[in-house]
Design a binder for these strands. Structure first.
Lengths: 130, 130
DNA sequence: TAACACTGTGTAATAATATAACATAATTAA
DNA sequence: TTAATTATGTTATATTATTACACAGTGTTA
């Protein structure tokens, strides 16, 4: 078992908000939404986001500068993320595919690099937008 | 054969600069460097960068907001990029691995999404930094 | 050749994303 | 109970990227 992280007030507020959305949220839109809860400054948001990313509760969609909750209840995949992103409606879905994950986990380059993390983003058109 | 793109003056200046570096460059560092060539504003840089990305001459390292030249002379892989990034020295290398590329190209999710592009970034420690 | 579409340019302003620096408080570990 | 660590609140600022506008060059096409 992993150490159970205890979240602080700010971290909880922000995680709650992100978990209620099934789509990624941007930092300043989060800030706008949590102002009524007493979080006033960007830095307070970014600090919480960074922590939540670190412990795997949320992931950053790098190409969109946005944050989405990890749906995997185990939350042990902070370091191995795969997303599909629709370039039309911007719908983002986390992908869980054992075969692909294995391949990525086992990947070795020829430079002797030691990997501990990867992020993969697929882009295209979802069923609705095709 | 693909249509041979003709680059404009600004695009050439900026591509030259990026190709001379074996590491990713950031937009504002590029701007600083090309001021002596008469490129004065961020937008001039971003416009050239966007075009160069589009035609596959350079790639954006999303997690770093930086741009690196594509070393593949065919430049047909604008839509399928794999990088390894050392989290200590920030060294970035483009990875060409046929087997992995095939897997990614052939990947199908169960949502009927139509992919036309992907970007994969591996993070870890390079040989020097281990 | 004129009208048009398309792409690129130059400039100014501003939006959006993210961090530095500082003082202080709460929590945990020794 | 001191020290170390982590989080907070606030102000200011750095970094990354786009909007808006006027105009110039190129290549259709009619």
């Amino acid at each position: 078992m992993q150490k159970q992280e205890t979240l602080t007030k700010n971290q909880k507020i922000i995680l709650d908000l992100i978990e209620k959305s099934d789509q990624p949220l941007k930092a300043y839109s989060i800030l706008f939404d949590v102002k009524k809860k007493g979080i006033n400054a960007p830095l307070q948001v970014y600090r919480a986001l960074n922590k939540l990313v670190k412990i795997g509760k949320i992931h950053k969609i790098e190409s969109r500068n946005a944050f989405i909750a990890c749906k995997n209840s185990k939350c042990q995949i902070a370091n191995a993320t795969i997303f599909s992103i629709c370039e039309s409606c911007e719908d983002v879905t986390e992908i869980h595919d054992n075969k692909l994950s294995e391949h990525l986990r086992d990947f070795k380059d020829n430079k002797g690099m030691k990997y501990n993390k990867y992020n993969l983003e697929f882009f295209g058109l979802c069923k609705k937008c095709v």
